[in-house]
Amino acid sequence: MSIGLKSIGSYIPAASIDNIKQANKFGETEEFIKSKIGAVTLARKDDREETSDLAVKAIKALDEENEAFSLLAIEALVVVTQNPDGSGLPHTSAIVQNKLGLPTNIAAFDVSLGCSGYVYGLYILKGFMEASGLKNGLLVTVDPYSKIVDPDDRVTALLFGDAATASWLGEDSELNIKTVKYGTDGSGAEHLTSFNGRLHMNGRQVFNFAALRVPPQIKSVLSNSNLELSDIDLFCIHQGSNAIVDAISRRFGDSADKFLKDIEHTGNTISSSIPLLLKDQVHDNKVQNILISGFGVGLSWASALLSRSL
């Protein structure tokens, strides 16, 4: 039995912040926002919406878009978040189980990871399902940074948006989950952290980390897969900002234009940015090999190969 990726649903709140107006407040130009940040608007959840509510909406979207999907068949639910409901006790996945009326014989747990969380989550859930003999699992990403971003902090206020995604994992998948590489360097933890309920980021240090650590890891995934750059159809890497995607893609020569960029109306949605990019690619048979890479809080990074099931 091999578990792979079958489909992805998503929820992006309709409300948003005008990032051009924010730029003016901080003395930045419209050009800077459009070319370097990439997000003209930042998606924002309603204050009354909890993290679990966003998760529920993403799962419902997945349900509506997939006839073969059944909520009652779900046997495992993993929620990747570092901004859970309340103070994190109980785990948000248990709250989601109850809100959706999922079966009570379900396995449900949270995973505490940031922007690398989707890549880790795919392997956590795949391994858990294969070891337990489960056939239907859900990997949810939902990390609403609006809970911790200080609107007066220029470094973070222009970047982050709220969103949630739900990935359906099971047999007879569209994409196989293949080679993976992980990385962790806690010595850089202070560069992206939360204390007293507020997010703090050293932008240059996080940028350096991503620009220097991610390209060699991606190349390592390729060499371990016996693939060349030309074999990869798309690179769906974490959308930290346009600038960081550009800084990483520049290191891949002619393949740079295969790196997707799409945060114009969302912002950096943490662990949701990769599945938001992947959503439209999962069912596109023209796309054979996709390289995914997530990087951020920890500092933590992970890169993997997804290949079309034959």
Binding site: E28, F32, K36, G203, R204, F207, N208, A211, L212, S241, A243, A247
Partner: peptide, 11 residues
């Protein structure tokens, strides 16, 4: 040159 340009320059 903006702040993000300079991130790349120092790298």
């Amino acid at each position: 040159l903006d702040s993000l340009d300079m991130f790349n320059v120092f790298i």
